[in-house]
Amino acid sequence: MASDSEPKAVDPAFTKSVVDKGADTVTLCFQCGTCTGGCPSGRVTAFRTRKMMRRVQLGFKDEVLPAEELWLCTTCTTCDERCPRGVKITDIIMTLRNMAVREGYMAEAHKNTARSLMKSGHAIPLGDAFRKMRETLGLHSEPPTVLSDKEALDEVKKIIKATHFDELVG
């Protein structure tokens, strides 16, 4: 990533591609900073929502898609609710993250969560300790979800193939 003192590579096609993906409200941002002011993540990190919106407007693709801070938003949507311009900030961040993943920027920890979904239909695994805990509560060791219905799990797996999510995660 370029430091603030270096000239930045501008890619107008990047802004257009974000807009074309439905995140068109990014163009409405007039940089008031209300988003940054209410951001719980920005309170503890260097993540600045306002700057990210500006970088998208200016086409600074290389400062947005590989950036770690793109993944520091908890999607709490406080910024969306307070934005005086109606910028759908969380939706824009989602669009940017989808683009980042397609460019290969996906953390290993997130790949593992994705693999769990692909394998079991749930975001987290069920181990023996929790199976036992369920039994103690009078529940079946597996909940009546895709975990205890192979056909239902196959449906989820087919969806994952049909949307090519499996190829995306690798």
Binding site: M94, N98, L117, T145, V146, D149, I160
Partner: peptide
């Protein structure tokens, strides 16, 4: 009652961040 045969919702923070199409399709199921 309990709705059976369901999967992960899928989780908005992770799966929607990765691929909105997959998120939408699994959610619709």
């Amino acid at each position: 009652d309990i709705l059976d045969k369901t999967s992960c919702c899928p989780a908005p923070g992770v799966f929607r961040s990765f691929d909105q199409d997959t998120w939408l399709a699994i959610g619709a199921r």
